[in-house]
């Protein structure tokens, strides 16, 4: 058997790798065209990114950048907001949790219905499956403007990640046809750049 300290050391290296290769910085211009065809889940993809291994200092909190989208007060556009947050092993979920938490700026308006929880995000074949609690529909006040802003904010927040090309919105683990009866959300949706304020 290996002495216990060797196994501990191995574990520390593994953790370091996972934590050190977290989310890429945001790319506000989005994915340009199809990324290389690899089938990955989020965790694997982090490790494939060529970032240097971290210096494993427990004192310095590792940070990552997360970009989320929120509406202008007049509900005409979405505006990206980039924050530095403590690094996590599931940056896509962290990004959605930041989206749900709402904007930092008082000039912007949250587009996610109150009480909505992020249940999880998985990436398969470049499609992010973003799962929310049913508050996404039940606490939604309706209106096509609100629906367009909400769908675009979810899709644009997740397509900031290079491994994500399209987003399938889900509620309680199931695909949904629509949120409030205007947009067709039954299929994975590509990034919406046309609602973003330039």
């Amino acid at each position: 058997m290996f002495p216990r300290y060797v196994i501990c050391a191995v574990l520390v290296v593994m953790l370091g790798l996972a934590a050190g290769c977290g989310a890429p910085p945001p790319k506000s211009d989005g994915n340009d065209t199809a990324a290389p065809n690899v089938d990955v889940n989020v965790k694997q993809n982090q490790q494939e990114l060529p970032a240097p291994a971290p210096k494993n200092s427990p004192k310095a909190q590792e940070m990552m950048q997360v970009t989320t989208y929120h509406a202008t007060e007049d509900a005409m556009y979405l505006v990206p907001e980039t924050q530095s947050v403590p690094k996590t092993e599931h940056p896509l979920q962290t990004a959605l949790e930041n989206l749900v938490a709402g904007p930092q700026s008082s000039q912007l308006v949250s587009v996610v219905p109150a009480g909505t929880k992020v249940l999880g995000v998985k990436v398969k074949n470049h499609i992010a499956y973003a799962d929310f609690s049913d508050d996404l529909i039940k606490s939604n006040h309706g209106g096509s403007t609100a629906e367009m802003m909400l769908v675009a904010a979810i899709v644009d927040t997740l397509t900031e990640f290079p491994e994500v090309e399209k987003v399938q919105i889900m509620v309680n683990g199931k695909k949904i046809d629509t949120i409030t009866g205007h947009l067709d959300t039954s299929q994975p949706l590509a990034r919406s750049e046309n609602l973003i304020k330039r």
Binding site: A71, E73, A75, V109, H141, S144, A146
Partner: peptide, 16 residues
């Protein structure tokens, strides 16, 4: 349809 948004100040007509 009739519209709705989180901010109650927002108003006006739109066509899609």
């Amino acid at each position: 349809h009739a519209n709705s948004f989180q901010n109650s100040q927002v108003g006006g007509i739109g066509s899609y």
